[in-house]
């Protein structure tokens, strides 16, 4: 059974906009897949459906054998802990330090604080932000904020990494580094699903490419 399976998934937003229209695809555990396509095609929507941030209007989204669309509210937090989420708009907390932002996923799961601090620093080191651990996110550049978001997504060692435009604000050098980071994760068995426009990155990592156009799978 696939780790992530969508069958005939449609999503119509309350405003009436049809963001996805009959999407079926399956992603195996340990796979690396890039969701590509023009702006407004429905890439972010697809990731949100997988993470139970949005519910499908039709069809089913199944993750680890669980139907996400019909999951009880109490089950959603535990589903989400399987994921490392990198948001297109970062969703950083500006009233906490860089370090405390990265600690948040560990606090939520009641992780031991000392061991958690060690992991948080390791995650910050991986994205090259350890020297800024005491800074406030507002003082970081766009690219640094993006890397912080990645550090927060990987700190609890999730089984699945869902990243929405993780290299959008990065220069080529950092984008390549982050690409290597994702490849390392993928090598140790993490499923990596990226929504991206970055064809350079795709050329380097040679992932499975899923192209979406106007809410339909155009090419897989």
């Amino acid at each position: 059974m696939s780790q992530i399976a969508l069958s005939s998934v449609s999503k119509r937003y309350p405003g009436g906009h049809q963001a996805l229209n009959g999407v079926s695809l399956a992603i195996e555990a340990g796979e690396m897949a890039f969701i590509t396509g023009p702006s407004g095609a429905g890439k972010s929507t697809l990731l949100k459906l997988i993470a139970a941030i949005e519910r499908p209007s039709a069809g089913s989204v199944v993750v680890n054998g669980q139907n996400v669309g019909t999951l009880r509210a109490q089950g959603i937090p535990f589903l989400r802990r399987n994921f490392g989420l990198v948001f297109q708009d970062h969703k950083l907390l500006f009233d906490r330090s860089v370090f405390d932002n990265v600690m948040l996923p560990l606090e939520i799961t009641g992780f031991d604080r000392r061991e958690g601090a060690r992991r948080a620093r390791a995650a910050l080191d991986k994205v090259g932000l350890l020297h800024k651990e005491k800074a406030r996110p507002i003082t970081l550049s766009g690219g640094e904020q993006q890397r912080l978001c990645i550090a927060r997504a990987i700190v609890h060692r999730p089984a699945i990494l869902l990243a929405d435009e993780p290299t959008g604000n990065l220069d080529a050098g950092y984008a390549a580094d982050i690409g290597e980071l994702f490849r390392d994760f993928n090598r140790v068995g993490v499923t990596v699903v990226l929504a991206t426009h970055d064809m350079q990155l795709a050329a380097r990592l040679q992932p499975r490419l899923i192209e979406i156009r106007s809410g339909r799978v155009h090419h897989d």
Partner: peptide, 16 residues
């Protein structure tokens, strides 16, 4: 509310 929203998005239970 930002903190609450983000915490929920990354898997915080209502109890937490």
């Amino acid at each position: 509310r930002d903190e609450i929203e983000v915490a929920k998005l990354i898997g915080a239970t209502d109890g937490w």
